[in-house]
């Protein structure tokens, strides 16, 4: 049951990712990317990471993709690409086959150690995924968290300075 659901979701994700590059119309490409993000969210749920799934939808599908569509709208990029671009597809195809080959080699050569960390499904069920992430973020990884927030603050100030010539 679980493995069937995984194959279905993965199949849809791969098809959607393919059509992101294949679609002639940027709006359709953006929609395919949203589909891909939703499939990733489902995969997160299956990996017992519901918090990640919710954040994936909220941040990527809910905010970033809306901004991309916003840009398409404002710059009026909605018209389809007419010309052929076989060379791009060919290059991408070669790269994809190469990556598949590499991945296969790594998977075949690698050895699963079979040891898991201290966070198991039981811990997630009893404590809760959100609590675990919050605890890790605000105790063990406090410094990276603070550095990330300062980076974001700098980005916000930069955006304001760039968009407003006189403040």
């Amino acid at each position: 049951m679980g493995i069937l659901l995984f194959y279905l979701t993965a199949f849809v994700a791969v098809i959607a990712a393919f059509f992101v590059t294949k679609c002639r119309n940027p709006v359709n490409s953006a929609l395919c990317l949203v589909t891909n993000f939703l499939c990733l969210a489902v995969l997160y749920v299956m990996l017992e990471a519901p918090f990640m799934a919710a954040i994936q939808i909220m941040v990527y599908a809910g905010a970033i993709m809306v901004l991309i569509i916003f840009v398409i709208m404002l710059l009026n990029l909605g018209t389809s690409v007419k010309g052929n671009y076989v060379h791009g597809l060919a290059g991408g195809g070669v790269l994809a086959v190469l990556m598949l080959f590499l991945t296969n080699r790594f998977v075949a050569n690698g050895q699963a150690t079979g040891t898991g960390g201290e966070i198991t499904s039981e811990v997630i069920k009893s404590v809760g995924h959100t609590e675990l992430i919050g605890r890790a973020m605000f105790t063990d990884f406090l410094l990276p968290f603070e550095i990330a927030s300062i980076l974001l603050l700098v980005a916000i100030i930069g955006a304001v300075v760039l968009s407003k010539r006189k403040i």
């Binding site: 918090f51 909220m58 905010a63 959100t130």
Partner: peptide
């Protein structure tokens, strides 16, 4: 979070 995601 689910509700906020759907609202998004």
């Amino acid at each position: 979070l689910y509700i906020l995601a759907m609202a998004g």
